[in-house]
Simulated scan of single mutants.
Amino acid sequence: MKKWLMSISIMVLGSIAQATDVGHPEQEAKADLEAGKAKAAVCGGCHGMDGNSAIPNYPSLAGQHPNYLEKQLKEFKENKRQDPMMVGQAQTLSDQDIINVSAYFAQQELAPGVAKPEAIALGEKIFRGGNPVTGVTACAACHGPVGMGNRPAKFPRISGQKAAYTIKALKDFRAGKRKNDINSMMQGVSANMTDPEIEAVAEYSAGLAKE
């Protein structure tokens, strides 16, 4: 148990230290929110104009860390993260557009989510304690006790996120379809997660509220 906890600490601290791009306050200060809102109009069909998606498989962007959104858009643009629709959309954006759009969505209020009651017990167990038997790290170790993430390390906010999207993301990491996670952390964590664990933790995190 002690070795398992120590490995979690080393992995988390190492990833924070090795995150090569830990946010750009100077860029965020230059963000044009009105320009971001205008450019985000094309995003609204899938993610909602205020960043609250009405489509379960598409993530809500409201309240997400701007530097995390910048990272994802840049990696779609550079084909480091694969999705036919998002790659095409991102390639139309300039670097300044990405800063503006990310800042705009980060400023929006995320609508509260709801967890399925039957998933809460297992979801909370995995979220807070992981599964030491199979080597699954607790989600809270990186994403925080209420899922608000870690902005300097670019660990995203997952509280309130659509459960269906989180399920897809975890299964894509597990299957190796998505590989743009820092130090392959999410690929490693999801590799040992069962479908019931993935579904339960996705539901649980969807119902978490901001501190």
Rank of each mutant, 00 (worst) to 15 (best):
Q107I: 03
A121N: 08
I98M: 07
G113T: 02
A121C: 07
G123V: 09
A106S: 05
A103W: 03
I120E: 00
Q108T: 01
T92C: 14
Y104T: 00
A106T: 01
A106G: 03
P112G: 09
E124I: 00
E118P: 00
Q91K: 15
K116I: 03
K116A: 10
Q91G: 15
S102E: 10
I120G: 00
A111L: 09
D95G: 13
Q107C: 06
I126N: 13
L93I: 15
E118V: 05
A115K: 06
A106N: 08
I98R: 09
P117E: 06
A111H: 09
I98Y: 11
Y104E: 07
F105Q: 02
G113I: 05
N100M: 07
Q108F: 00
G123C: 01
L110Y: 06
L110N: 09
E124Q: 10
Q96N: 13
A103D: 07
A119C: 10
Y104D: 06
P117D: 02
Q91M: 15
S102K: 08
A121L: 10
E118C: 06
V114Q: 01
V101M: 04
E109P: 05
F105M: 00
E124C: 05
V114T: 14
Q91T: 15
P117K: 10
E109K: 11
F105W: 03
L122N: 08
A106L: 05
D95F: 13
D95N: 13
I98K: 08
V101R: 03
I99F: 04
Y104S: 02
Q108S: 04
I126M: 13
I120N: 03
Y104Q: 08
N100K: 06
A121Y: 04
L122I: 07
A111C: 04
D95Y: 13
E118N: 07
Y104C: 03
E124W: 10
I99Y: 09
G123A: 06
I99R: 12
L122D: 00
I99T: 11
L110M: 13
S94P: 12
G113E: 04
A119W: 03
Q91E: 14
V114F: 09
G123Y: 07
A115V: 01
E118S: 10
D95E: 15
F105Y: 01
A106Y: 00
D97T: 12
Q91S: 14
S102I: 01
V101P: 00
P112D: 11
A121W: 05
F105S: 07
S94Q: 13
Q108M: 02
A121K: 08
I99M: 08
A111D: 09
I99G: 04
Q108K: 00
L93S: 15
A115R: 01
A103H: 07
L122A: 02
K116H: 10
L93C: 14
L93P: 15
K116S: 05
S102H: 02
I98N: 12
N100G: 05
Q96A: 13
I126Q: 15
T92S: 14
E109C: 02
G113K: 10
